[in-house]
């Protein structure tokens, strides 16, 4: 099977006592929208950072499209972090220029359309925008790329319900069947409708990797309800 992401025995330890990601073996296919779900501290963000080369695994191997993490994989991965990574003194237009320069798969037209539909002024400076609008700008930048892998870390956490709907529509509309979208979130019920598969993580380990359809069929529950059952305190 042609996997997009291959993690082989990946471990990440910040100290000698514990591992944030613990001997993870996981292969994810192309063409799916996958939810990366788990309680706080389960290792989701650490895993995502390793996929993007922001953390180096303590041991194990990560491959995207068969290549180890490096400039080639970064050219194929569109990453939305859980924070604002854009400089405050830049205008939205300057940021679009930057993305257009660095990412060959960036579509300026698509970004302009999304900015217009969200009523974001391209001349506005980032530090003049609200937190929610900054997040929208970042999402637009990411979803305007024709990437092979979209990695979205908490994409709907900081925005209002109306914007959430828009973001989910954006993900669905811009998703192409050859690419995979990996979404990490706590707001499962909001996102469940768009997911094909889910990965549950706890204490740095993968506890479940299955399709949403399977959960519905076998457990007779929604992903949100099943998540609450699995991770009940």
């Amino acid at each position: 099977m042609d996997h997009l992401i291959d993690l082989t025995d990946v471990t990440k330890s910040y100290n000698a006592r514990s591992a944030a990601v613990d001997h993870v073996m996981l292969s994810l296919p192309r063409g799916k929208i996958i939810g990366l779900l788990g309680p706080n501290g389960s290792g989701k963000t650490t895993l995502i950072k390793m996929l993007n080369g922001l953390l180096v695994p303590t041991s194990g191997q990560i491959r995207i499209s068969g290549m180890p993490i490096g400039p080639e994989t970064k050219a194929k991965v569109a990453y939305l972090p859980d924070r604002t990574y854009l400089a405050g003194n830049q205008t939205v237009t300057q940021i679009l220029d930057f993305f257009e320069d660095f990412y060959q798969d960036f579509s300026r037209e698509r970004a302009a359309q999304m900015l217009q539909s969200l009523h974001i002024d391209p001349k506005a400076r980032m530090n003049s925008l609200s937190k929610g609008t900054k997040e929208k700008v970042q999402l637009i930048l990411v979803m305007s790329r024709n990437a092979e892998l979209y990695v979205l870390d908490e994409p709907i956490a900081g925005v209002d319900p109306a914007a959430r709907d828009y973001i989910l529509r954006t993900i669905l509309n811009n998703y192409n069947p050859q690419s995979t979208v990996l979404i990490s979130t706590h707001l499962i019920s909001d996102i469940e409708q768009v997911l094909h598969e889910v990965v549950f993580m706890r204490y740095g380990k993968i506890v479940l990797y299955t399709s949403v359809e399977n959960i519905h069929k076998e457990k007779g529950k929604s992903v949100d309800a099943y998540f609450r059952e699995v991770f009940a305190c």
Partner: peptide, 13 residues
């Protein structure tokens, strides 16, 4: 800092 998230995800060595 946070801006490093952009720097280190650019397709550059």
């Amino acid at each position: 800092t946070d801006e490093g998230y952009l720097t280190h995800t650019l397709p550059a060595t």
